[in-house]
């Protein structure tokens, strides 16, 4: 994105030429480095602290690197609360929840774009407006409903209320609209029904968009907090963010920071790794999808 203008630039404008080197470093690299460090340092500090011995954390003489890096904090966290179970619950909820959401989004978006139906605009508007309703506002009525159905401390109780997907439907619809109708016409002549057109043509040519929706959904399911917090009070059913809350001393006394940083690493690292590998899709999905607010 920054290379295409280089060719047209006169030599004296090159940022790394001798005349401009000082200016480039002061005006270009220093702000860039500063912005990067502001994000990077707190996360690095979390990683390093999670590997430190208690004596290196509960001290006023800060050391940067752990003297004897160990996973003791992780073991301590796992012996205080069922951490492996939290992790498993988060994985289950994220995998099942995002899979269903993506399938629902694909089907709905296909129907909205490619199938004739009289009230399509109304239905699309209904989905569009749902994008703007904050989930926090619906928490109390949904809690009463799910509790009444016996869904407290169950996987389905955690997953079900979030399954309807306005975001994924909207994003995929926008993409499906850009597909040339010609690619479906030949299939229609062959007598293919909607089911075959969906799976043989539309889905295969839309893999990048579906991947974008899947990644954004996975990230938001993994990070989901208020609903699982309300709907679970049994440790065996808590997801990672909810379980982490259990590690914090609510009375405001001194926290076990090593243990908490280990917990923070467990909840943040999987998403950081996914983001590092596939950030193009995630960034474009999150910035496009919020076009409507």
């Amino acid at each position: 994105m920054s290379t295409n203008t280089l060719e047209t630039t006169a030599p004296r404008d090159r940022p790394l030429s001798w005349q401009n080197l000082g200016k480039t470093i002061a005006g270009g690299y220093v702000p860039l480095l500063l912005a990067t460090l502001v994000v990077f340092v707190p996360l690095l500090w979390m990683m390093l602290s999670s590997l430190k011995a208690p004596g290196e954390i509960v001290t006023t003489n800060l050391t940067l690197l752990p003297k004897n890096p160990s996973l003791q904090n992780y073991a301590d966290a796992a012996s205080t609360v069922p951490f492996a179970r939290f992790f498993l619950n988060s994985v289950i909820v994220t995998v099942i929840g995002s899979t269903i959401k993506c399938v629902l989004a694909v089907f709905t978006a296909y129907a909205l774009v490619f199938i004739r139906f009289p009230f399509k605009r109304v239905i699309f508007l209904l989905i569009l407006v749902a994008l703007m309703v904050p989930p926090q506002v619906s928490v109390l009525p949904n809690y009463v409903l799910i509790a009444g159905m016996g869904g407290l401390n169950t996987y389905w109780g955690i997953i079900l209320p979030g399954l309807g997907t306005a975001f994924g439907t909207f994003l995929l619809r926008q993409h499906f609209l850009t597909l040339p109708p010609a690619i479906l016409e030949s299939a229609e002549i062959d007598g293919a029904g909607h089911w075959r057109k969906l799976w043989k043509i539309v889905v295969p040519v839309s893999v990048p968009s579906i991947a974008t929706v899947a990644l954004v959904t996975i990230v938001s399911e993994w990070n989901e907090y208020i609903w699982p917090l309300i709907v679970t009070d049994h440790p065996d059913m808590m997801t990672l963010p909810v379980g982490l809350t259990q590690l914090v001393n609510s009375d405001g006394s001194t926290q076990n920071w090593g243990m908490l940083m280990a917990g923070a690493v467990i909840v943040l690292l999987p998403i950081l790794l996914i983001f590092a590998a596939l950030q193009r899709y995630i960034v474009s999905g999150l910035t496009q999808g919020s076009v409507t607010g």
Partner: peptide, 20 residues
């Protein structure tokens, strides 16, 4: 990419890091 990263992270995890 680095600057965007915090936006996709769990608010709970981020809150704990900063609380420390």
């Amino acid at each position: 990419a680095v600057v965007f990263a915090p936006y996709v992270l769990s608010g709970v995890g981020v809150g704990l890091v900063w609380l420390f």
